[in-house]
């Protein structure tokens, strides 16, 4: 894009940096390095799409790997130490060091990024799935077994529905960690909305603030969507019990 795009709307200047950030998103501003126009709806949507893509991809991988293990351990009531310590250890991993080490030691790119982000997502999903399943009233499980249900049917029709709120709690924690860390993905060579924040020398303070607002909005929107999914997945009986 060449310079000389849409003129900055004057009234917005009154809002100081927030006004500039608004302009950055909706019409773009000249790069600090000069010459080209950066920001603007096209780039914003592009980077936002990349951030969402990376986040959902990594969250999907984390769920795919952690959920079956959590279900199995929880159903067998075994491996509490493993499941719970995984959650504790996961919290101690410094996100920045993980991304930086993956990028420096293995290389930049989509696959490495998704692996690093999935590593952050696995612990809370594993721990919460284990806790949710193993806390299901054993009387309900015995009753299901007495009715002649297979073990798989017990997991699917009794334990899983009752554990939905706890499991989704873990998925939401994982999603927040992943989308937050996807913000520093530019360090691993994948440009997300975090590029506006990290590459201040290109986008300036207006770009940094715009990036911060967009990332915050995106994280809140993701959290709200997952809360909605959780509500839709929770059985009617559990909802009545809680209200």
């Amino acid at each position: 894009m060449e310079a000389g795009g849409p003129v900055i709307p004057v009234p917005l200047a009154a809002f100081g940096l927030f006004g500039e950030a608004f302009n950055f998103v909706f019409s773009g501003t000249e790069a600090q390095t000069g010459g080209v126009t950066v920001g603007g709806p096209e780039q914003v949507l592009d980077l936002a799409a990349r951030q969402l893509e990376v986040t959902l991809f990594a969250l999907g991988v984390a769920i795919f790997l952690a959920l079956p293990v959590g279900l199995w351990l929880g159903h067998r009531q075994k491996g509490e130490f493993l499941a719970v310590s995984a959650g504790n250890a996961g919290r101690a991993i410094p996100e920045l060091a993980l991304i930086a080490l993956m990028a420096a030691a293995i290389g930049v790119g989509m696959v490495n990024l998704v692996v690093a982000l999935a590593i952050l997502g696995i612990p809370p999903i594993l721990t919460n799935t284990y806790v949710g399943i193993s806390q299901v009233d054993r009387a309900s499980v015995e009753a299901a077994r007495g009715m002649g249900m297979t073990e798989l049917a017990i997991v699917r029709k009794v334990e899983l529905p009752l554990a939905v709120p706890t499991i989704m709690g873990g998925v939401r924690t994982a999603a927040i960690n992943i989308i937050a860390t996807a913000t520093i993905a530019p360090l691993a060579g994948i440009l997300t909305l975090g590029d506006f924040i990290i590459a201040r020398n290109v986008y300036g303070d207006a770009g940094v603030l715009a990036g911060a607002v967009l990332v915050a909005m995106m994280a809140l929107a993701l959290e709200a969507s997952l809360a909605g999914i959780q509500w839709a997945m929770t059985s009617k009986g559990l909802k009545l019990e809680r209200s």
């Binding site: 927040i176 937050a180 913000t183 924040i197 603030l209 990036g211 911060a212 915050a216 959290e223």
Partner: peptide
Amino acid sequence: TIPSISFFF
């Protein structure tokens, strides 16, 4: 929910 890195800015 707001990522810390976003909150800074």
